[in-house]
Design a protein around this nucleic acid. Structure first.
Lengths: 273, 273
DNA sequence: CCAGCTGGTTCCATTATGTGGAACGGACTC
DNA sequence: GAGTCCGTTCCACATAATGGAACCAGCTGG
C-alpha cells in the first residue's frame, strides 16, 4: 500500500483570505481565526467589530468554540486561544512528512552558513513557514512557524513562483494585491515578473530587504514532479552581517539543498505514486 | 485595563471525551480529532469506522474540513492534518501566558537536574502537557506537547489533584476510569486517595513507574488562589539513571520552582484581577 | 439618585443547513 | 461477467443556525 503522507495540491488551492463556502464551520473558524490572530485577549465587542456577523450569531459561535476547548474565556470576559489547539498543533506539525524529510537538510545548511534557515510552502498567494533552524537554540518552536508571508516580497515566495508552470503562475499573479513593506518591495506584476525571470535563470531568488529592512535572504525552490507540492528553502540574515556577495556564495549550497529535498520528497513519496 | 492572558476555570471544565453538545461544530471537530490523532494518513472508510457518523454526513464534514485547510487530502484519497492547523498551533502556543511565565523556571530546573522537565495543566481528568525542556535540544517542539495523560498515573496529575479543594477533587475522582498501564498503576480511587494524602503532606508527588515502566518522576503543583488554574511541574527520568533517592533530593527544587511559578502567575495576573 | 449609556447575554419565530438513507459508479477480484 | 468494496452524489426531511429585538447588568455623568 502506498501512502504519501505529504502535502498536495489541495492544500495550496484555497484562496488567501479564508472565510466563505463552508457554511457553519467556516464561520466558526473565521471567528477562531480572529481571536488567534490577535496579539492579546479580545473582548466580545472587539471581536464583534472585527467580524461581520450579527451579535447573536457571534455570541453563539464563541460559546461553542469555548465549549469545544478551542477558545477559553477568562473571568474578565476576554477570549483567547484554548488548549485544544495545542494538541492539534503539535500533532499536525510532528507528523508533517514534508517537514520531516527536509529537516536534516535544513540543519546541514544551517551548519554551513550559520544563519537562519527557513522551510516554507506555497499556498495560494502566500508562503507558509513550516520549519526553521536558527542560531539561538532557545527559541524552540520557530518564531514564526505557521505564519504566512506574501509571495512577492520574500525569497521563498519568489523562488517558488519562479518554478511554477505558466498557467499556475498567471493564476497566482492575477490574485496578488501589493502592499509596500519597504522601499524595495515590488509593487507591480511587471517588476515582479522580471525578477522571477532572473530567478528562474539563476535557479535561486533573493530578498533584497523587500519584506523587512535590514533583512536579506537567498532562496531556492522545492517541488515535486506534479507541482502538487511547491515550496522552498532559504538562508536569511541581517544586512549588516550578510552582504549580497555573501548571498551569492551561499546560493549554491542553498540550491543544492533544495534539489536534495526535492529528490528525497520524490523518493519518499514512492515512485509508484 | 486589566487583562489576564491566562488560563482559567473554563479550560478545565470540559469532559475528557469531547464530542457532543456543540452541534455541527462539535461533530466536525470530532472527525478532525480522529484524523489528527491517527499516526498515519487515513482512508475514508477507516475514518468511517472510527467515527459514529453516517457515510453521507462524514463525507461532507471531511469535505468542509479540507476546504478550510484543516485537513488535506492526498491524491491517494488519504486524509491528514492540514497546514492551517500549524498557524493556529503556533499562535496559541506562543501566546500562552502561563507557559511564558513558567518557561524560565523550567529551564533553571533543567539545569539543576539535567533531566527532562515538564509543565502541565489539569483539564478534567487529564493533564495536558504545555511545555517541556529536555536534554536533546534537537527535539525542538517537545515530543508530546499538547498531549494528554490521565491524572491518576502521572506525577503531574497527582500533584495537581493533591492541592484541589475537596469538592473539585471529589468531582474529578468521580469521573475517573482506570486503565492499567503498568504493574504500579493505581486502579482504585481508594489507593489513589491514599497516595494523594501523602503527596499533600509532603508537598510533592511521585510517579513510580505508574504510567510507563522504567520512567519515574517527581512533581509539584502550581495553582492560583482561586484554583482557576491548576497544574504542575515535574522532573522525569529513566529508572536506571534516576533512583527514588535521587527524586527525593530533587523534590525540594521542584517544589521551589512550582511555588515560584505560582507566585509569578499571581503577580502577572495583576493583584486587581 | 436617577437617566442614559455601553457591553454582554438571552429569546424565539424564521429559514437556511446539515442530516443520513439510499442509489450510483468505478475499480478490483474471483 | 457477476460480485464486492469504496468513494461519491442525491434529495426529502428535520434539526440547528440565524439575527433582530428585548433584556439586564454595570458605569457615568448630570
Amino acid at each position: 500500500m502506498k501512502r504519501n503522507g505529504i502535502m498536495t495540491r489541495e492544500m495550496l488551492s484555497s484562496p488567501g483570505t479564508e472565510n466563505s463556502g463552508t457554511g457553519t464551520l467556516g464561520k466558526a473558524l473565521s471567528v477562531l481565526e480572529i481571536v488567534v490572530s490577535a496579539d492579546r485577549p479580545l473582548r466580545f465587542s472587539e471581536i464583534l467589530a472585527l467580524s461581520d456577523q450579527p451579535r447573536g450569531t457571534l455570541h453563539r459561535h464563541l460559546a461553542h468554540l469555548v465549549e469545544e476547548g478551542l477558545l477559553i474565556q477568562g473571568r474578565d470576559l476576554c477570549y483567547e486561544p484554548g488548549l485544544r489547539l495545542l494538541k492539534f498543533a503539535y500533532r499536525s506539525w510532528s507528523k508533517n512528512q514534508f517537514r520531516a524529510v527536509a529537516a536534516p537538510h535544513l540543519r546541514k545548511l544551517h551548519e554551513e552558513t550559520g544563519e537562519t534557515v527557513h522551510l516554507g510552502v506555497l499556498r495560494g498567494t502566500e508562503i507558509i513557514y513550516v520549519d526553521k533552524v536558527e542560531s539561538r537554540q532557545t527559541v524552540r518552536m520557530g518564531s514564526q512557524i505557521g505564519n504566512a508571508s506574501p509571495v512577492y516580497c520574500t525569497g521563498l515566495g519568489k523562488a517558488a513562483l519562479s518554478v511554477l508552470p505558466q498557467d499556475r503562475l498567471a493564476e497566482t499573479l492575477g490574485k496578488l494585491t501589493f502592499h509596500r513593506f519597504t522601499a524595495n518591495t515590488h509593487h507591480s506584476v511587471a517588476a515582479l515578473k522580471r525578477d522571477l525571470d532572473e530567478a528562474r535563470l539563476r535557479g535561486y531568488a533573493f530578498d533584497r530587504e523587500e519584506h523587512e529592512t535590514e533583512i536579506r535572504c537567498v532562496a531556492a525552490a522545492i517541488h515535486d514532479t506534479g507541482f502538487d507540492l511547491v515550496g522552498g528553502i532559504s538562508v536569511t540574515g541581517p544586512a549588516y552581517r550578510v552582504t549580497m556577495e555573501q548571498l551569492e556564495i551561499w546560493a549554491h549550497p542553498v540550491r543544492q539543498a533544495a534539489m536534495a529535498i526535492s529528490e528525497d520528497v520524490e523518493v519518499r513519496l514512492g515512485p509508484g505514486r
